[in-house]
Design a protein around this nucleic acid. Structure first.
Length: 492
RNA sequence: GGGCCAUUAGCUCAGACGGUAGAGCACCUGACUUUUAAUCAGGGUGUCGGUGGUUCGAGUCCACCAUGGCUCACCA
């Protein structure tokens, strides 16, 4: 259907004929610069002052109503829509004839007088108009818009043209990110950019994408997290840094996962995970207030209160509360396995599982979905936290938390492990797991160990999934609703 | 990857029991100089996702494939 004229359907054929007709008449269907004096929404908001004044506006024709020698249309710019009124007497027959043949979807510039119609609608009377871009494909239906989700994602540009609420979501996304930046900038965090192509895919447990550099003749990984580079910067003396950008994980696609997704990671020297909890709840509630003017939000019909302070619940207590299993008295891996069996918790346990991984599995199975209001789950087992500092009181656990809202992991943070010797032995344990077939286990990063050997100040680090935060704040059910161009298989 | 569901005109959708495809919008022709889901008269523009099969006959039944959605698994 693309390209070959003989394959064009009737609607597209007609539009191409109109295009040729315009060119025959010496009219360029793809205009150049057009100087606007007003946006549509500005005119609507300031009609009192603008009545009978001239305006130059530009936008896409979204509807047309022709009544013979006069026509109405609505044109849409990035701020909204306004009605225009074209009258043969005002324009002359040549111009009016061309106007009459314009299609819904065409982009035009209009100059004319601002007035109010008999029906009370603020309207621009077309004095002159200029075709700025001919639209060769029919737009979806004006009343129902574009509903087919597959088309909406594949042709987001069409979705954005006809579904104004979609545009609002992405405007909100931008405001949210801007608000995060201004929050951190005002607290003297420095925004930095670290590599997206890594020799070693570190900083998280995930399968990476692999790419190849021709000249250097080597494979590179798309980053799964910026963590290890940001902490190198902390070693280097940047005491408060953050980065907002894409991570890439070669894993499943779902309503909560896209292979490339946006994370913010930040590190603060001389702080710990308690500071990160304070920062997280302040950050998210401030952003919600700034962008949406409220902290009580509704997500998929559930009211969620983002006002600080949020519950801080040790994982051991959470697991005891929701599963009945008390991992404070369960001391060994064998005891843990037995306890899970006795409690008839529906879990698949592997021989490689240990006390900590079992605790985490029980947590995910029994607790996670219950955490609707913002909750910090604190003190994660060391086995699943290879970059976090051990708790002094209980070395099986770490100073790590994850934030859950609506049963979803929204943030992950810890007091950073800054002991190079211990970090090395943690990496070695990960490498063992990798060798045993765990594709998500961390890789050894000798240079990172070198960096730690120079001394990294104690630091708190935090990562927040931006897409999931935007989902929450915009009440979007799927991550694809907050990513402009979500990953899709090609159509053919 | 498993399960369930969907795929029909540009868009939104309808098509019992298997009989050769329909509506609204959009579009085309005509009428109409303040309409607004404009109105009125006329016009259906289609590889029914694809490939096989069953059948006298398939949009409809069967198998496989593709794409998408939901869900489970995975994602600590």
């Amino acid at each position: 259907m693309d390209g070959q004229p003989e394959e064009l359907n009737e609607l597209m054929r007609v539009r191409r004929e109109k295009l040729a007709e315009l060119r025959d008449k010496g009219i360029e269907p793809y205009g150049a610069r057009f100087e606007r004096t007003h946006t549509t929404s500005f005119i609507l908001a300031n009609f009192e002052d603008l009545e009978n004044k001239n305006a130059a506006i530009a936008g896409r024709i979204m509807s047309k109503r022709s009544m013979g020698k006069a026509s109405f249309a609505h044109i849409q710019d990035s701020t909204g829509q306004i009605q225009i009124y074209a009258r043969l007497n005002d324009m002359g027959s040549q111009a009016y004839e061309i106007f009459s043949k314009l299609d819904i979807g065409d982009i035009i510039g209009v100059t004319g007088n601002i007035f109010k119609t008999r029906m009370g609608e603020v309207t621009v009377a077309v004095g002159e108009f200029k075709l700025l871009s001919k639209c060769l494909r029919p737009l979806p239906e004006k009343w129902h818009g574009l509903k087919d989700v597959e088309l909406r994602y594949r042709q987001r540009y069409v979705d954005l043209i006809v579904n104004p609420e979609v545009k609002e979501v992405f405007e909100s996304r931008s405001k949210i990110i801007r608000s995060i930046r201004s929050f951190l900038d005002s607290r003297d965090f420095l925004e930095v950019e670290t590599p997206m192509m890594h020799n070693i895919a570190g900083g998280a447990a995930a399968r990476p994408f692999i790419t190849y550099h021709n000249t250097l003749d080597m494979h590179l990984f798309l980053r799964i997290a910026p963590e290890l580079y940001l902490k190198r910067l902390v070693v280097g003396g940047f005491e408060k840094v953050y980065e907002i950008n894409r991570n890439f994980r070669n894993e499943g696609v779902s309503t909560k996962h896209n292979p490339e997704f946006t994370m913010i990671e930040l590190y603060q020297a001389y702080a710990d995970y308690n500071d990160m909890m304070d920062l997280t709840e302040e950050l998210i509630s401030t952003v919600s207030l700034e962008v949406f003017g409220r902290n009580r939000i509704e997500y998929q019909g559930t009211e969620i209160d983002l006002a600080p302070k949020w519950t801080r619940l040790p994982m051991l207590d959470a697991v005891k509360m929701y599963s009945g299993l008390d991992f404070r008295s369960i001391k060994t891996t064998d005891e843990a396995k037995n306890a899970v069996k006795l409690a008839k918790i529906d879990l698949v346990l592997e021989t490689s599982d240990t006390w900590g991984t079992i605790l985490n599995k029980v947590f995910e199975e029994t607790v996670e979905p219950k955490l609707i209001q913002p909750t910090f789950i604190i003190d994660y087992p060391v086995e699943i936290s290879p970059l976090a500092k051990r708790k002094i009181e209980n070395p099986e656990l770490t100073y790590r938390f994850e934030l859950f809202i609506y049963g979803r992991e929204m943030a992950n943070a810890f007091s950073e492990l800054n002991d190079p010797v211990e970090q090395k032995s943690r990496f070695l344990k990960q490498v063992e797991k990798r060798t045993a077939g765990d594709e998500e286990a961390h890789m050894m990063d000798e240079d990172y160990i070198d960096a730690l050997e120079y001394g990294m100040p104690p630091a708190g680090g935090l990562g927040i999934g931006i897409d999931r935060l935007v989902m929450l704040l915009t009440d979007s059910p799927s991550i694809r609703d907050v990513i402009l161009f979500p990953t899709m298989r090609p159509r053919d």
